[in-house]
Amino acid sequence: MNSIILRTASPFLVGLTVLFSIYVLLRGHNEPGGGFIGGLIGASAFATYTLAEGAAATRRALVLSPIALAGIGLLIAGASGLASLLFGDAFLTGQWWFPAFNPELKYLSTVVLFDIGVYLVVVGAILAIIIGLEDET
C-alpha cells in the first residue's frame, strides 16, 4: 500500500504498539490483559508495518519466520508446564518463586512464562497468515 502518511507514521506506531502489547501481556495477571490480548495487539502492530512496508520488510524485522515464532511459543508454553513435574506436581501446575530481596515481586513464575508462550503463538500464527496473504498480492 503506497500511502505516505502510513509509511511515515508506521515505525513509530509499530514501536509503541509492540511496547504496549508487552505491557498488556505482563500486567495481565492482575489487570485486564494477558498473553492472548497482548499477542493480538502485537500482531496488529506488525500487520500495520506489513501494510506500510510490505511483507519482505516485516520478515527482515522479525528475524525469525512467523511460523517458527509460533512454534517457539508453543514450546515455551509446554516447557513451562513440564517444570512442575520436577517439583512433583501435575503437568502445568503453576510454580512461583518469591525472591528474598523482594517477596512481593509476583512475576517470577512458570505461569508468566506460559503466558509469554501464548503471546508468541498468537503473534506468530496471525502474522504467518497476514504475511502469506500479502506476499501473493
Binding site: 494477558g34 503453576g94 505461569v111 500464527a125
Partner: peptide, 25 residues
C-alpha cells in the same frame, strides 16, 4: 493473580489453553 479471566486461562485451565494455542498454530 487478581484478573480472574487471565488466571483461569493460564493457571486453573492452562491445559485447555495449551490445547487451544496448539490448534492456533
Amino acid at each position: 493473580g487478581r484478573n480472574i479471566v487471565n488466571v483461569i486461562l493460564v493457571d486453573f485451565r492452562a491445559l485447555d489453553t495449551f490445547g487451544e494455542i496448539a490448534v492456533v498454530l
